[in-house]
Amino acid sequence: GEEGTASDEIQELTIKFAHVVSENTPKHQGGLAMKEYIEEHSGGKIKVEIYPNSSLFGDQDEYQNLVANNIQFIAPDVTKFVGHNPQFNVPALPFLFDNDEAAIAFWDGEKGKEILNSLESDGVIGLYMWPNGGKHITNNERPLVTPEDFNGLKFRTQGGQVLEELYTTLGAGSESIPFSELYTALDQGVVDGQENTFSNIESKKFDEVQDYMSVMNHTRVDYAIFTNTTFWNSMNDATKEIVQAGVEEGTRVAREESQKLNAAAYEIIKERGETEIIELTPEQIEVFRQVLEPIYEEFESAIGADIIEAARAANEEYGNATE
């Protein structure tokens, strides 16, 4: 901003934050924390409106509306951007991160920032990763303990070439079925299984219609909060300081809530007892890791050896090995 003497005055603004998940999610809680912080610290000069549940824009159109500055923040699943930049495939790479901390450390690190900033030519900046958690596999046929158990099964994924390759490597098939149809599709056996975070499995009650759940933690769902350069550069220092701090507060809350929510969801699934839970041992995980290793070779050139290197380093430092 070139407001001259007024540049230390907080600007009057309305900030719109649109996302596609419901209100009882870490993402929405993070958004609320952000709203509260910014509105309070700006003395009400900055208003933050949150649009959950795709009520304003959905998965397919929020990006271009961010670019057009019709909204100022979105927080999509980063793998939605694999079509823009294949490096966003990181959360879909098998067994890359042991836990949220390792994934956060990667995305907060240099290489992670590089990926998040790779959309700058479109006028989009990625600020922070907001975790959703590790994914686990449910199915209706048999307990999945070894790679051979996957043979011939059909899984639903949210799409993407890495996940497709992952299931192909395990001798299984994958289909992308809309999330809203998934419960019925599982119930009626259109597909045999699916992969999701504990919180999604619990809230959508997939355990009711799936006999087995393997706690695999093989891939992840991670969101990131994005803003656009038009908006970001229009703020003067005083304003930007508050908004930046608000985003950080939202990030803190979203990260904290995500862990709490997944832990609670796992407990609920156990209590409901609808599905047989298989917790894989480190040795059993290792077998999968070996079998799925070729995926790294296949996607190394697209994603970048340095990226994978950095992710592994983050996992060395923050993953389970340190405990």
Partner: peptide
């Protein structure tokens, strides 16, 4: 003051639904 160039994408994505 809405940038209406994205309106058409809204129409497209609203139709582009397998369901």
């Amino acid at each position: 003051d809405f940038s209406v160039n994205t309106v058409i994408q809204k129409m497209f994505s609203g139709i582009n639904s397998t369901t």
